[in-house]
Amino acid sequence: MTTHRWRGTVVYLGALAGLAAIAVARFGGLPFEQAAPAVAGSTVPAGDTGGSTSGSGSAVPDGTSPSNPGTGTPDASTVTVGGDVAQTPYGPVQVAVTFTGTRIVDVQTVQSPVGPESSQIAARSTPILAQEVVSAQSSHIDTVSGATYTSEGYRESVQSAIDARG
């Protein structure tokens, strides 16, 4: 019986490309993509478009509209901080944490483990982990059942973003 190991790679790459296309179409890219390539732990004001509006129609994470630059200006203390990439046995985990003042208002998953089973686990667990971080206002959150390594990596990346924010 001959197995074709390359089939898994093709399926993996197709799923990864599909997820990336959906994410870009829905969210318009990463909130800190206007800056130079994202550096883990960097701080960029949310909604900072570098003085120009691209008209891409993508929403800014804090809810302001780039199509109306004169209205809905984000609070001066709203920033998004990229956490460090946490390596897990199933792949990297990285988040971007949005702060208003010292309060955590949003957590977006930048990277999560990808694979046939890992993608499903990450898709199920990362929204729960994000809600928990916002509720707890810290990285001290419970592990999601069945997603132990993803939860650990998520906590590590969130903590590095909190440490970078100060």
Rank of each mutant, 00 (worst) to 15 (best):
G83W: 00
V85F: 05
Q94K: 04
G14R: 09
P89W: 00
Y149K: 10
V85D: 01
G51N: 05
E156Y: 01
G18Q: 08
T148H: 03
V93F: 02
V81I: 08
A17V: 15
D106E: 10
V24K: 11
T98I: 04
S118Y: 08
Q131V: 08
S112C: 06
E33F: 02
I121K: 09
H4S: 12
V44N: 06
S118W: 07
R124H: 12
V107W: 08
H140Y: 10
S139P: 09
A122N: 01
R124W: 12
G55K: 06
L13M: 14
S139I: 09
Y154T: 07
V11P: 09
T49V: 11
V107H: 02
L19Y: 11
A130P: 05
E117Q: 15
S58D: 10
S151N: 09
V44F: 12
R5K: 12
T3H: 13
V107E: 07
L16R: 13
P116T: 14
A15D: 14
T143L: 14
V11G: 10
S145L: 09
T2Y: 13
T100Q: 14
L129V: 01
H4E: 10
G83P: 11
A123Q: 02
R26A: 13
A21E: 15
P45A: 12
T3W: 13
V107R: 07
T126N: 06
G28T: 03
G70Q: 09
Y90T: 12
I121H: 03
Y90M: 04
S52N: 14
A122D: 05
T148K: 03
A147W: 06
A59Y: 04
G91F: 06
T143S: 02
S52Q: 14
M1N: 12
I22N: 11
I121Q: 11
A161Y: 00
G115T: 06
G29S: 07
T143W: 05
T109P: 03
W6D: 15
G153N: 11
G115H: 08
T88Y: 08
G57L: 10
V133P: 04
P127W: 06
S138G: 13
S157A: 10
V10W: 13
M1G: 15
R124N: 14
Q108K: 03
S42G: 10
A136H: 04
E156M: 06
L129R: 07
V81Q: 03
T3K: 15
I162D: 01
G166K: 10
P113W: 04
S135T: 15
A17K: 15
Q137L: 09
V158R: 01
A96H: 09
A46V: 14
